[in-house]
Nucleic acid binder design. Structure first.
Length: 219
DNA sequence: GCGACAG
DNA sequence: ATCTTGTCGC
């Protein structure tokens, strides 16, 4: 599939923040409710600055794998909270470009709107591809929230600077919640529905679990 | 000012 | 993210 060009690539944190501030205006917070092909994305790190990006596309109806891509690369930016996306973006974009099918939804490992400048990895990938995208975080980042109820499907809003930016969502009974937020072209209700639907058995959505496995065991 | 801080 | 043992459960 076609993905918008990344350049110019930032060198400093100020430049990276400026990229986020510029692209933030392109995020759309409404979109489709139904998705036929869902892609899970993840990156595995080796040693100092080597990484493998993986994308797994699955049929949302059957959960069968439609296509898998891995790309080896290098860390593209130092880790700075809030600028995490710049580490993995080039490898993930290359993996998406190598897909022969176009997914209808990107399920990203990290945050979207629930981010210091409202533009996490899921927003960035959504804007560059033009595709609906959502983010799933495993640990709290920005904002505050009450603990969600204990049942699968229970959730609590994440509030940051007076706005609801995501939800702490319980995907399995009495299991630590995940932190979901909008990336691009999707509502928060649809994010919640999709993450629940895609995580029928485990804490994390299946597309992310499969991408994680593939990134660790390419071939 | 100091600490905390997605992966 | 990654460095790591044993342990609990399907």
């Amino acid at each position: 599939m076609q993905v918008q060009q990344l350049h110019p690539w930032p060198t400093t944190t100020a430049e990276a923040e400026a990229v986020q501030d510029r692209l933030r205006g392109r995020v759309e917070l409404t979109g489709p409710v139904d998705f036929a092909l869902v892609a899970g994305l993840d990156v595995h790190y080796h040693g100092e600055d080597a990484l493998t990006a993986a994308v797994v596309v699955l049929d949302a109806g059957t959960m069968a794998t439609v296509e898998e891509v891995t790309v080896r690369g290098r860390v593209a930016f130092p880790y700075v909270p809030g600028l995490f996306a710049f580490r993995e973006l080039p490898a993930l974009v290359e993996a998406l470009e190598r897909l022969t099918v176009t997914p209808d939804l990107l399920v990203c490992d990290g945050y979207g709107l629930a981010h210091p400048r409202g533009f996490g990895l899921a927003c960035h990938l959504g804007v560059l591809t033009g595709l609906p995208a959502l983010g799933v975080g495993k640990t709290p980042f920005v904002g505050t929230h009450e603990p969600p109820g204990p049942e699968r499907g229970d959730w609590a809003p994440i509030v940051h600077e007076g706005a609801v930016v995501g939800r702490a969502l319980r995907t399995q009974r009495e299991i630590k919640p995940v932190y979901v937020s909008q990336g691009h072209r999707i509502s928060l209700d649809t994010v919640t529905d999709q993450v629940l639907r895609l995580a029928p058995r485990y804490r994390l959505p299946d597309p992310i679990r499969r991408a994680d496995h593939l990134a660790r065991h390419p071939d």
